[in-house]
Write a protein that binds this DNA or RNA. Structure first.
Lengths: 345, 345
DNA sequence: CTGTTAGCGCTTTCAT
DNA sequence: ATGAAAGCGCTAACAG
């Protein structure tokens, strides 16, 4: 078993009896206009015969480009089983289909993120698409020193040097409010997410804004303490229901919490939508088959991701500079009416 | 808007008033045993302050390694919506979680594959995990000249210099045969996939082998012309049923075809499992909710992918050479009994 | 059309 | 503990 050293351009040039520059040209000129076709063929033949592959690293070093973008994902077991990331990947991958760009997944625990990028390792990417941004929230500065064009998916946070492509969370909140209001609900409780989540803040803002219009009188109770998880949502609702059973509807700022509420209601023998109506947010696949199917806000993640990738590539093609890449794109969301909201009176 | 040129090690060295070698050491020595701790701190501070990131390419060129593996996937819209690839990604990503390796997706149309790898571009990866191998089948030689350790997922084909991690298709065929036989079926038709698919060949081989044991007398009809798609399966069955309606069961070499058959039977007013029993292969998620739920062979793709990634990393850590990486790992498959098979007599 | 040469940014001996 | 200098494999002027 010999340790075959990978071939270099020198090996080929020697074999072909030409200079390395000629080999380089033969490889890089699409037409053979810069190389005698006889030479071209000889070189091509040799390359083919020996299975030579140029070193990307060396190429890149010379100033050419890697044509690769990085996708930052939370590093946790089974991420890819989440519909969220499936849509994100599908969108990005489809957007990149017709381009020459490929992508690299950068699985990173938020805490590690700063280290990796600030100090030790660079990544072989020209730009970044970041998901789950709010986890990295405390390290906003990271992005500014990255010196790479970044686009952040579905988490509009203006205080950072990146481009944001996101569902319109404010609109989503408004849609939910409008729906509940139209169905006659006048006493509504809202289950919020973590305080640090801008998703949560924006959705709530939209929800409230709807009721700020003249004449829309409702009694709103904001239930803090939610963390976007089922378990916590149940606790919060359980506590709440002991004190204020007159509420007729819950707006949960994500589907997980809504699912938790649904289940809790069932367990205590209350019915949705009969006793309480529930609206969720995200349009998680499980909401289609929950009991009852959940009325929720659909976030077009596939489209968002696609758009994000398009913007990034556009940006990459435009300038070779490492400027920041500010801006923001909001995509409309949609209310999916299912069976968890019932008209009052 | 200034075009900020990315910082280099020279910038930092100048700023710190030390040589580039010292900066390099400061970055690479985990402990500060090779650098005076005062120097270390100064350099680290500067790096941090200016957000310097070393160029991976330059590093790699020097001989260090990229710590990235490539995943070859078919380049087609919506790949990531397929449960198959979701499982593969999840498995690989989970296996890599505890390692220092990251992965890059190489979306490639089979036809392009040869070109990319043989001639034009190298990829910034140390090894490859290949899915959907049978599409690349005609280009077997590609892998041999890749000079990279390759592992192929779920498609055991021995004539190639790579490591194969796969479900045991022969066993799957046997399981199906055994089940149908045990349920009393004695006249069975098999819908095969494309001739070129080794999956199809191996599954069929297992199926037949079971009946080669003494005393297991059945009448087997092999239906050629299938292509692993629903549409074709319907045609094949339609034609067949006109001539040989005495059959009691179908074994379809993948679930798509089985689903096609199920639907066809329904359309012509025949019932499964009452009139005909059907067994599929793959355990596609749709088979759980089909009407009736389909009895099928579960292929542990998540585990397969995980194992594949483990092997590759193991191999990468072991040798720095570019030798081929032969071998083969077969993981057991499992029969999922649902409602599409009915006992005879 | 082809060869020569100067980098690209970093790691690594080899000195000091 | 630190500096000087030699590459790593390739691309891109610049000559010829």
């Amino acid at each position: 078993m010999t340790h075959k050293r990978p071939l270099t351009i020198y090996d080929i040039s020697e074999l072909a009896g030409v200079s390395i520059a000629t080999v380089s040209r033969a490889m890089n000129s699409d037409t053979s206009d810069k190389v005698a076709s006889e030479t071209f063929n000889r070189v091509a033949g040799l390359i083919d015969k020996h299975g030579y592959t140029p070193s990307l690293a060396a190429r890149h070093l010379g100033g050419s480009t890697l044509k690769t973008i990085g996708i930052v994902l939370p590093q946790s077991p089974g991420v890819f089983f989440h519909h969220y990331y499936v849509q994100v990947l599908a969108g990005i991958s489809d957007a990149l289909l017709e381009t020459e760009y490929q992508f690299k997944l950068i699985m990173s625990k938020p805490a590690q993120f700063r280290d990796r990028y600030n100090f030790r390792t660079g990544e072989a990417v020209e730009g970044l698409i970041v998901t789950h941004w709010h986890s990295f929230f405390s390290h906003a500065s990271v992005f500014e020193r990255l010196q790479l064009p970044c686009v952040v998916i579905n988490d509009p946070e203006p205080n950072v040097l990146a481009h944001f492509v996101s569902g319109d969370h404010v609109m989503g909140g408004e849609l939910a409010a409008q729906h509940l209001y139209a169905k006659g609900h006048r006493q509504i409780a809202v289950l919020t997410g973590p305080t640090c989540s801008s998703d949560s803040r924006l959705r709530l803002r939209g929800f409230r804004r709807f009721f700020q219009q003249a004449g829309r009188r409702v009694e709103l109770t904001i239930l803090p303490g939610g963390d976007f998880q089922q378990e916590k949502a149940r606790e919060v609702v359980a506590t709440f229901l002991k004190t204020k059973p007159s509420v007729t509807a819950f707006f949960c700022l994500n589907d997980d919490m809504a699912l938790g509420v649904l289940q809790f209601l069932r367990e205590i023998g209350r019915s949705c939508p009969k006793d309480f109506s529930v609206v969720g947010y995200d349009d998680d696949p499980r909401t289609e088959t929950s009991v009852p199917p959940l009325t929720t806000i659909h976030v077009p993640l596939y489209t968002i991701a696609k758009e994000a990738a398009r913007r990034l590539v556009e940006r990459l093609k435009a300038g070779k500079d490492n400027e920041s890449f500010p801006g923001r794109t909001l995509l409309p969301v949609e209310l999916m009416e299912r069976r968890s909201v019932r008209p009052r009176r």
